[in-house]
């Protein structure tokens, strides 16, 4: 039985797809059989970030509609044999995702994988609800600004009331992933701090991913940033994956000083 984890946010453009790519890659790198599903039907881009867009023949909606088998639609990652991608259709709309259809696909995947990562579309409508409905756990991706935090709060309410687990009286395990964090702007008071966000959302912090140029260059080259452990964002995602698997790790990249400290450490190690 796989663990189903939705990566969701409410607000758009906060880093869900970036996080889905790195977290699924991280799980696979640590030996877990992982599949990442793009629920953003109509706006495919997980396959771009994972650099497999030219290998897409069939997609998630084809499988739901019985037009293709899972084996035909699943794309094996180039870098890691434990990782598969189930791409979204560009030509349909989100209503093509039916609850029964999604359940059928998840059940089938559940027998073959340890982790199923669901990359949710933005918003709180049908597409986002389909992505979170069957989740055992949720990673709520939030940027350190008021509107993103508010939307995350909203999504947490939906997870508690409209997911399958909620309907069965169980709870979905919630994780906060604070992304695009810029300690300098936090110090200047231009962004909310980790503590501000933690206090408002009151859920466990999975990790803080710094705002980083490396994220842009890695998504342009189609290699999820977690592959590059010389980058701050890559290390931060690796920490987050370890925590997801149960490890206790201190938070890094939260303060400006610490970042400097780690930079010096890293430089020291590299020249030694």
């Amino acid at each position: 039985m796989a663990k189903i984890i939705v990566i969701t946010s409410g607000k758009g453009g906060v880093g869900k797809t970036t996080s889905s790519a790195s977290i699924s890659t991280g799980l696979a790198l640590k030996g877990h059989k992982t599949v990442v599903i793009d629920f953003d039907v109509g706006l495919r881009n997980l396959d771009l970030i994972m650099n497999c867009e030219r290998r897409v023949v069939y997609d998630f909606v084809n499988v739901i509609n019985g037009e293709a088998t899972l084996n035909q639609a699943l794309i094996k990652d180039k870098h890691n044999e434990n990782l598969y991608i189930l791409p979204a259709s560009q030509t349909r709309d989100k209503d093509a995702l039916t609850q029964d259809g999604v359940e059928k696909v998840l059940n089938e995947l559940s027998e073959r994988f340890d982790f199923i990562i669901c990359d949710s579309p933005a918003g709180i409508e049908h597409g986002a609800q389909m992505a979170l409905y069957f989740a055992d756990e949720a990673i709520v991706v939030t940027n350190p600004e008021v509107s993103s935090v508010r939307d995350s709060d909203r999504i947490l309410g939906i997870l508690q009331s409209k997911s399958r687990r909620a309907e069965n009286g169980e709870s979905v395990k919630e994780h906060l992933l604070l992304t695009r964090y810029n300690p300098i702007r936090v110090e200047k008071g231009e962004m909310l701090s980790v503590d501000d966000v933690k206090e408002i959302l009151a859920i466990k912090l999975l990790g803080v991913i710094p705002e980083s140029q490396s994220v842009l260059s890695s998504s342009n080259s189609g290699v999820p940033v977690i592959h590059d452990q010389s980058t701050d964002a890559g290390q931060a995602y690796d920490d987050a994956v370890e925590r997801l698997l149960g490890a206790e790790k201190p938070q890094r990249f939260i303060t400006n000083e610490k970042k400097g400290f780690f930079k010096r450490m890293f430089k020291g190690a590299a020249t030694a």
Partner: peptide, 23 residues
């Protein structure tokens, strides 16, 4: 109690052992 949620205690008191979000 999260943004978008509503809780109503009919006939009695409402006690929330947590925070109530904006919205």
């Amino acid at each position: 109690i999260r943004s978008g949620q509503q809780v109503y205690a009919a006939d009695g008191d409402l006690i929330i052992l947590a925070s109530v979000s904006a919205g």
